[in-house]
């Protein structure tokens, strides 16, 4: 068997899950949809003493809409979000890019955010929409801004005993844009990507975490320019790193071009940029 031995917990309630996390702290890893964690276990890149399977915690699967905000439970599956007409426009266009449909059948919103792959779609969506991440532990709940939540590859600001329980997004149905470049069709990892909501502009898959392009946003706030001018500003701001399939130069150039494209797309969708 490829995964290392671990104790398996399958709590039925959030309180039960939080109690296990509180007791075992950094020895315990939550298991959401498993689409990233199971390979990490199989490759023994992680060796947690305990796995806390959250699949039976019904309260984490809820999705609700109120007062212009959409609250997505951390264990909501990508599949359910993809087909939910209550979602913000950016979510609807970005989620079909997450893996293949077989992956979206199991993968979850909270799992993707907590895993924090720099090339993943959800961290970019969260950053572009100024999402609020709700973390819970036995000591209570706290809100974390998307920007403060994501630190780097597989690193978030969650404490060892905390679980991400909910993501809160503003309900925006206009003014969004999303694009990514992959090697092999819709389901592959992004070599570079860009997302925007009105004047909030994000690139992802280019560096150690998604990046808000504040200089580009200032440029747009001062009246903006042509698509080529926007891309030029983006190219000077994007912090790209080298990756296995791509050089930092390639990622910067492609992401900058995508920024121009998504802003044009958002304007065509009635955005205020």
């Amino acid at each position: 068997m490829k995964p290392p031995p671990f104790e398996y917990h399958r709590p039925e309630t959030l309180d039960e899950a939080l109690a296990i996390m509180a007791e075992h702290g950094d020895q315990a890893m939550p298991l959401a949809g498993g689409q990233s964690l199971i390979p990490l276990l199989a490759m023994r890149l992680v060796r947690p003493g305990r796995i806390v399977d959250l699949s039976r915690v019904g309260e984490l699967q809820q999705v609700s809409v109120a007062e212009g905000r959409v609250s997505i439970g951390a264990m909501a599956r990508q599949r359910d979000i993809e087909h939910d007409p209550r979602m913000p426009g950016l979510v609807r266009v970005a989620v079909p890019h997450i893996g293949h449909f077989q992956i979206r059948n199991r993968g979850t919103v909270g799992g993707s955010l907590s895993h924090m792959d720099p090339a993943a779609e959800w961290p970019a969506i969260a950053l572009a929409l100024d999402a609020v991440m709700v973390a819970a532990s036995v000591r209570g709940r706290r809100d974390i801004t998307a920007d403060a939540f994501m630190i780097g590859p597989q690193m978030t600001s969650l404490e060892p005993e905390e679980l991400l329980v909910e993501v809160v997004l503003p309900m925006r149905t206009e003014g969004f844009g999303f694009a990514e470049v992959t090697r092999r069709g819709l389901g592959d990892f992004a070599l570079a990507g860009a997302a925007c909501q009105d004047k909030a502009v994000v690139v992802f898959g280019v560096g150690l975490r998604p990046q808000r392009l504040r200089v580009v946003e200032d440029f747009l706030n001062r009246g903006g320019g042509t698509r080529a001018e926007i891309s030029a500003v983006a190219a000077s701001e994007i912090q790209a790193t080298d990756a296995i399939h791509t050089s930092s130069h390639y990622r910067r150039v492609v992401a900058a071009a995508l920024v121009g494209a998504v802003i044009e797309e958002s304007q065509a969708r009635g955005g205020v940029a």
Binding site: Y8, L31, G34, Q35, I38, S55, F101, R106
Partner: peptide
């Protein structure tokens, strides 16, 4: 799995 296509390598049997 329950009529949905899933990767059996990305699930634990216990799941």
């Amino acid at each position: 799995g329950d009529g949905e296509a899933v990767r059996s390598c990305l699930m634990l049997a216990v799941q």
